[in-house]
């Protein structure tokens, strides 16, 4: 009996030591959010979609405010140039210059992939702060891509979330996740995002390259590369109106 008590105390000690060894999880994801989310941002990006037959790159400029408003204009290739996408809350409109039409994307269509990528419209729209939707826990330390990372486990604390849990590898220096594994409730790995090329922009660390891969599908995933990011800009309000789609 005594022996068991001793063992318990010992185990507890180890346990508390573990906690002591790792920083506070809530603190980490708060730092991640501080890096990754901003009141608004303006960026240019190149999305490279690696299809089975060909790869193509799509250049766009995006203005976004938190997770409720975003406006994207496609700049190239020629076939997509001038196409614009406006998202307000849960609604999405697409403007195509060739047809001069504004088309609303709703319901099931939001679940379709955007331009053949591994991202759905919904994936693109889902941009909530981790602290709002997940409870976090640090479960270890690992080195990937030559960076020391905290390994974190995030579990949804709200119900309306696309991925029930996430496993994050958070760079210890910059507090930017450099890999995100997204899981279903059953524990099945559904998507993997790899974040690279972390740069300091306006006082925050930000990954300039994202690679998304739908783990159930074949293919090489979609690469999203930022070429120019600016945070906390003055974005005129008219940008986020349907009128600006046709401009």
């Amino acid at each position: 009996m005594k022996y068991i008590k001793f063992l318990l105390i010992f185990l507890l000690a180890i346990n508390s030591e573990t906690y002591a060894k790792y920083p506070d999880a809530a603190g980490i994801i708060k730092k991640i959010d501080e890096n990754m989310f901003s009141t608004n941002r303006v960026f240019e990006s190149v999305m490279t979609i690696n299809g089975k037959r060909s790869s193509r790159s799509i250049v766009s400029r995006t203005y976004s405010v938190g997770d409720e408003k975003s406006f994207t204009e496609y700049l190239s290739p020629a076939s997509e140039k001038g196409t614009k996408m406006l998202k307000l809350d849960n609604q999405l409109w697409i403007y195509s210059p060739g047809t001069d039409r504004i088309i609303q994307i709703s319901g099931h269509l939001l679940r379709q992939s955007v331009m053949g990528s591994d991202l759905s419209y919904e994936d693109m729209m889902e941009e909530r702060k981790l602290t709002d939707i997940y409870d976090a826990k640090v479960i270890g330390e690992e080195e990937i891509s030559n960076r020391k990372c905290w390994v974190m486990e995030l579990t949804a604390k709200v119900e309306d979330v696309a991925y029930f849990s996430q496993k994050l590898w958070v760079d210890q220096e910059s507090y930017v996740p450099i890999r995100e594994d997204l899981f279903g409730k059953s524990g099945k790995l559904l998507k993997r995002a790899t974040l690279e090329n972390i740069k300091k922009i306006q006082g925050r660390w930000f990954p300039m390259k994202f690679t998304y891969k739908d783990m159930l599908k074949e293919g090489n995933g979609t690469v999203f590369e930022m070429t120019d990011v600016k945070f906390d800009q003055k974005i005129p309000a008219y940008i986020f109106s349907k009128a600006s789609l046709k401009k």
């Binding site: 193509r56 076939s79 697409i94 001069d100 088309i103």
Partner: peptide, 13 residues
């Protein structure tokens, strides 16, 4: 409104 052969967005009036 659909997908192009390459997966892009197809619009045509």
């Amino acid at each position: 409104f659909g997908s192009t052969m390459e997966g892009g967005m197809a619009f045509q009036n």
